[in-house]
Amino acid sequence: MNQKAFPATGFFFLSAMLVSLLLFFPTAAFAVQSQPVVQTPWWVWEIALFVFCFFLGIVAVIGGVGGGVLFVPIVSSFFPFHIDFVRGAGLLVALSGALSAGSPLLKKGLANLKLALSMALIASISSIGGAMVGLALPENVVQLSLGATILGISLIMLLSSNSAYPEIAEPDTLSKILHIYGIYYDEQLKKDVSWQIHRTPIGLLLFIVIGFMAGMFGLGAGWANVPVFNLVLGVPLRVSVATSIFVLSVNDTAAAWVYLHKGAVLPLIAVPSIAGMMLGTKIGARLLTKVHTRVVRRLVIALLAAAGMRALLKGFGI
């Protein structure tokens, strides 16, 4: 692999700087949520948000996470927007990314429509519930639970080890009834790989929880979808990642409508975020072969942990 020192060093400093800012700067230095911020012209915030999301998109794709999970905790820490609008924008950032990536993955047969539809139906209902609860809770409770969730996600990312090709001895009855199985062409193995799943009822229960959390915090839920598909249901890793994107597009659509009706979506915040993140993701994908992805992934985990800590502190009013 072509590993270049410069981009890796750049990412290290960028992420290290963000971690330091998240941990050591007082909340009031960035997001003054109880007082209006009128001294900075609106267009400065717009440009700053676009540029910030552009770099977040690069870091996210190299770190192997969806942009949504980084967006909410970090943007709510650095920008003067209320967390309601940040969560609304976060859902749309995750939704846009999923919609853009979905088509080629479905065409290649990597994303599986039947697997996705079976899980998305139940998860989308719970994501509506999550969005309603999230928008009704007091701000400090949202910050506290967001902080705990983000810390949990960073722990999952640190500890989980995926299985590229899980072995399933016998598919369960429900997956047989739902005809959930498939075959895809694996570019690494240069051959067709067939797969089936087990523990479908447990998977469905876990997707209820995932949908709820995605709706509540405005996070894309790839961090949870992939381990459940891969480690619980036994779906090959590539199919898990691709199908997760499809599930995300359905869940986030359901939750996004709740945010739209509750007035928690401002185009002024959502559009620069989507545009910056999409552009950053494209650049990040090109840089993938040029940087130490493992190093960047660890920095992303550190970044998430710092953002989680910061949200917790804000929740405690510190």
Binding site: Q33, W42, W45, P80, H82, F85, G88, A264, L268
Partner: peptide, 9 residues
């Protein structure tokens, strides 16, 4: 909008 976007939705 920018003068009020710090408020709850």
């Amino acid at each position: 909008i920018a003068t009020q976007w710090h408020l709850r939705a």
